[in-house]
Design a protein around this nucleic acid. Structure first.
Lengths: 128, 128
DNA sequence: ATAATAATCAAACAATCATTTAATTGTTTT
DNA sequence: AAAACAATTAAATGATTGTTTGATTATTAT
């Protein structure tokens, strides 16, 4: 993207690397997704929805938060296409979206926990 | 972690899943790392340092930011163990840290860009 | 020593964000 | 129709964050 010479020339093949750099637009898309993972409460909710489908109050109880706060996070996750919802009677059930992007996020989160806390984090029937 | 029954019982094996849920502590560690990726400017800097070693002003020029702003992000990335630095004369060179965690992040970012903008993002000699 | 270059730091700013509280909507039950 | 339950929404609050500006430190060149 950046075509003009850099202040210093260290002999590296930096021009070629900068040519491979994704466009600003793609960095913004990526960072927006990573932002969904950067709050520990929201990450816990997402982790849970990677492994089951649950209704709002159960999610709230499982993560120990108010339904209002949980609803806020669910709205954000849904807005970014990471989860889906369906209403059944009084309750609304949430689970991971059936998209390539959502599955990539699921894999990323699993990989991270496998590294930082092996044993935990991976649910048995996680298809890999 | 959460042992008491949930408000609703939907017949799912939720207890087993909650038993596999990583501890709060690990969610905080994970979210702290993801937080380093959730700003597009910082993500661009990190992407660059995944593929080369560069000094401060070249990084600043490559991403089109002030040296002060870049320095701020570099400090944060270093504080979280994602990059390292070495001084050589007047300049300080930065690059991806030589750790399992940093390589995992590198892979995650590459995977994401491969999905969202195939062709770009991957540098030829990226060892995978 | 002085000047120039590279990087860092501190204070300040606007902007964003997660949560709380209280009110409201949608659905089911009585 | 009224009451109960589940979820959403709006406004407010406190906290955090990314960037700017200007000053400061570290290193090299003159």
């Amino acid at each position: 993207m950046v075509k003009q010479k850099l202040p210093h020339d260290h002999g590296q093949d930096i021009e070629r690397i900068l040519g491979k750099m994704p466009d600003e637009e793609h960095f913004m898309e990526a960072s927006a997704i990573f932002q969904q993972l950067c709050d520990s409460s929201r990450l816990r909710i997402l982790w849970l929805l990677c492994h089951c489908e649950e209704c709002g109050i159960n999610i709230a109880a499982a993560v120990g938060m108010s339904t209002a706060a949980v609803s806020h996070h669910l709205k954000s996750l849904k807005l970014h296409g990471l989860i889906t919802s369906r209403r059944a009677g009084k309750e609304v059930y949430y689970t991971l979206a059936d998209t390539e992007e959502a599955r990539l996020i699921h894999r990323m989160v699993d990989d991270f926990f496998q590294m930082s806390c092996p044993g935990k984090g991976l649910v048995d029937y996680d298809e890999r």
